[in-house]
Amino acid sequence: MSARTASWRRHILQILAASVVAAGLGYFSNRPAHRHLAEDQAVIKLSLRHAGQVLGECHTRTPEELADLPANMRAPMVCPRERSPLLLELRLNDALVLSEILPARGIHNDGRASVYRRLVVPVGRMNVAVRLKDHIESDVFQYESSRTVRIGPAENLVIDFNGDLGDFEFLLAGSLLPDGVPSDQGAALEDPLDDLEARDRKRQDDEEVDETPVGKRFTAAHFDDAHYPVGEEVEADGDYGEQQNLTHGRGA
């Protein structure tokens, strides 16, 4: 078969074939670029790890109960270990966007409950309110916190429940960059609103142009449906659209 094609022609074809392969490898190794957040979208990450209250009361064993037990297990008191699931809610401009019951972990439901949710939201100024109930039958939410923030494009607002402080922490653009890399992203903020507004003013001064190409995957359309004008202060009117549209990357 080889005799049919002259050897110099074969070599040229081989080089050609290798070039095609190389071009394919080179191209698809980082192209086409993938946009997974539209230009007018930002992210809220809500995270928590917390143990609910123990369900039920300790009680003293009756003598009959004690007699039924093996000698080495005759403790006079029994305390239940099962913990209550948590109820976690997130509101944006008073609209409920997340409400989840989080079961305690462990086969005896005696561990901590945990959750991590990434929500894609439109950029702009909004009131963010979270609250947490750690006894499911309780009438009140034991932990509550809210901030008015302004989230810029692609910024992450992290809301993490700090069990030690017993409060939610809000963290916006909390970044730590490698040495020598200039950044206008700022560090963790104590009071997000002040800094954000300062930064907003700076942004307007700079007239920053976003050069990222457009190619929307997730649009803010559902927010508009819910009468939520992007990037403006609003008086939210409750309905925030389908929750599924807001969240992704959620656990089971």
Binding site: S29, N30, H36, A154, N156, A173, H248, G249
Partner: peptide
């Protein structure tokens, strides 16, 4: 450089290995 304060909205994916990643977001 990575910056956990913001989300990389546009990424230059290696499609040989990460071709399913966009589906993780869109399909679940």
């Amino acid at each position: 450089p990575a910056d956990l304060g913001t989300t990389p909205a546009v990424v230059d994916l290696d499609w040989f290995y990460l071709n399913l990643y966009p589906f993780m977001e869109s399909v679940g």
